[in-house]
Design a protein around this nucleic acid. Structure first.
Lengths: 236, 236
DNA sequence: CGGCGGGTTGACCCGAATCAAAGTGCGTGG
DNA sequence: CCACGCACTTTGATTCGGGTCAACCCGCCG
């Protein structure tokens, strides 16, 4: 696989951006006052990514952490065999790349699955900010624990059970926060990397769900789900 | 499943304990000077756990974090179906229960797999210590990243591939740090919970490895492994 | 037009789950 | 001290889910 060395264009974040940020509740900034915020903003940058575009790569020196303003991002790892496995999904409001705060290289690659906008924050900024406000520690640790929780969930929910139950659990996960049972529908290959199954099996299960009316495909990349039916399948 | 509400007896940690601690390199205390350390010691406690004894339980309010002085600890989660899954293993020198620092309830249960000694540290102590030494932040975050790394590895290495490759990878993981290819051998049920396979399959694979001489069972709970052979199997 | 990436479907086979039955070691109580 | 029961492991027979290989469809773009 060949990667072009994309140098993404970022633009400075404005107050307006922050005001309209769908992730403005983020804990990182909770407890910061207006002056602090103005100062911090100086170092924030925004960029939009198309599906399949890479936000950062495993092994890159971690300079920034990113808040997902909207979209869906997959976080990848490679097994010793070389197969890529999706170990986490990040959605609106999630923070990714926190390794940057610890001055560590990124431990995963981050790739947009849908059109995605991120706000880029220098790791150094967070470190220096912590020197004046140690309360930040709690926020960061909480974020870390949330990440751990997410990976644990992947391990217990999306890598055990039959292909059907895994798929049901994945769809239930994807419709979270979407009120009306609507979920983004990844490609079959991505589903395979998420659930640890082959693309063919992913395709078969999706097709089956469609035929029996459990889901209804609206677009190539969106579908409507019958939550109750999926819940029943997921429980098995 | 019934749990007796064990109230474990802990004893105060002494300077000698610390001096002999197999985990004394731990990053948490790196950079603390002698006076600090003496003060900190006042709040440390030790206890030993027999196999199958619980150190803390998922959902308990997290008051302490623990450093494993020696032994092997499994960290458990339960799937929606109720099946228990081992999401991480902690060994000599590892820190577990870091959720306590963030004042969060434990996200997993910790159970000793072998005879295990832990050093218990109040989360509050770490929080207050951070107020005077924000450098601690880096150490904690690094620890968190290491945890994340461990879970990712479980996801990519121990939940994908055939039962044989998973078993090989598990054994290779278990002999790390043991110089002479010797690994602790969990029960078949634990292996099942680790690899996401049934106890029967776990038994069959172990038996097969034994017959073909890939491993040699020394005790019920220890075995000697041919690293090269296992590596070859793991690569598949 | 032809090629290509993504999705669907079919035929076949193999690995692991399941169900079932013995075998082994160990602690307890008679 | 032995016998019994229990927990754990091993092994076998059978079933079944999902992997593999291959063909084909469709929409898109050069």
């Amino acid at each position: 696989m060949r990667h072009k060395p994309v140098t993404k264009i970022y633009r400075r974040t404005t107050h307006d951006d922050c005001a309209t940020c769908p992730a403005r509740h983020i804990d990182l900034l909770a407890g910061t006052n207006r002056t602090d915020r103005s100062f911090l903003l100086e170092s924030f940058d925004l960029a939009t990514f198309a599906p399949k575009e890479t936000i950062y790569r495993l092994g890159d020196p971690g300079q920034w952490l990113y808040v997902v303003r909207f979209g869906l991002v997959k976080l990848l790892r490679y097994s010793s065999g070389g197969a890529e496995r999706i170990v986490q999904l990040a959605r609106t409001g999630d923070t990714i790349g926190t390794a940057a705060v610890a001055r560590m290289p990124y431990r995963r690659s981050a790739v947009a699955m849908t059109r995605t906008e991120v706000c880029r924050i220098p790791g150094e900024l967070v470190r220096s900010y912590n020197r004046t406000k140690p309360e930040l520690l709690a926020a960061l640790l909480t974020q870390c624990q949330a990440d751990l929780d997410a990976v644990d969930t992947f391990l217990t929910e999306l890598s055990t059970g039959s292909a059907h139950t895994r798929m049901a659990r994945l769809l239930l996960f994807l419709i979270e926060k979407h009120d009306h049972g609507e979920a983004p529908l990844p490609t079959r290959e991505e589903i395979g990397a998420l659930l640890g199954i082959t693309t063919e099996t992913a395709s078969r299960v999706i097709a089956e769900f469609r035929r029996e009316g459990t889901i209804e495909v609206l677009d190539t990349d969106r579908c409507h789900c019958k939550v109750e039916v999926l819940s029943r399948i997921a429980r098995a």
